[in-house]
Amino acid sequence: MAVWIKPLHSLFSNRQLYWELLVRDILTNVRGSMLGLAWVLITPLVLVAIYTFVFGVVLKSTWIGQTESPLEVPLIYFLGLVTFSFFFEIITRSPEFIRSNKTYVTKIVFPVDILAWVVVGTSAMKLLASIALLAVFMVLVMGHLPAGLLLLPVIYLPLLFLCTGLAWILNAIGTYVRDLYQFLLAVAPVFMFVSPIFYSIEQVPSSARAVFWFNPLTFVLENARAVLFFDGRIDWTGYLTFWAGALLVFFAGYAFFQKARRGFADVI
């Protein structure tokens, strides 16, 4: 089988198991709680409320004056934050994910590589819920759905592949080196501030700007913001570059994981 089809083939041939695991993973956090799945919406709702207050009322923000309504500004922050937490959740959960599912590794004949898809899938579902919520608020604030909403899947798709590749790498290293989880917990907040969530890439001094583009979130944040709030368009050249980088990480991550997984059972 061609190398480039392998990771997708594994997911496809185990799709039923994947679906069961994904549902299980999403429900695990809320199971036993009284509100259950509603928490998937409540958490971002609270976020919107806080950001509306802080960035719409208290602080003078970057984008004030550029949007039709000042109430759109908190939604811009919200979009940035849910995108970041999608990424954050994946990189902080991945290092421990194999260990926390170790019975699958050691006790069942199991396609361990689909666990990375599970992490990404769960975060993607939450992101989807948050964006649906965002759409509702945009209708409330702007009175209509922006056409750019349709472009969001296009923008986020390469990020999905990139994050899966990253998840494999972190799965693999984290299974051996337990410090990775702690390390990522420590640096992830830093990552939040070097991503253009609370500011635009234009505000970054042009000398430092090149470095920013290596942050996988930069492209997504800038373009999603543009199509959703400023009637902008996708930077298609950048988009192709982003895809190229994403696929590189995806396949490299898979290859790395496949090599490393041989020793999983011996170290956990």
Binding site: L17, R24, L27, T28, G32, N101, T103, Y104, I108
Partner: peptide, 29 residues
Amino acid sequence: RVAALLELGAGFNPDFSGLENARLSAVAY
């Protein structure tokens, strides 16, 4: 097809019902 019963209830999550755990387990097998 190999079914390894190396550990009873491997992958069972205590918060989920017997039915749910059985289904995931069966699909994993």
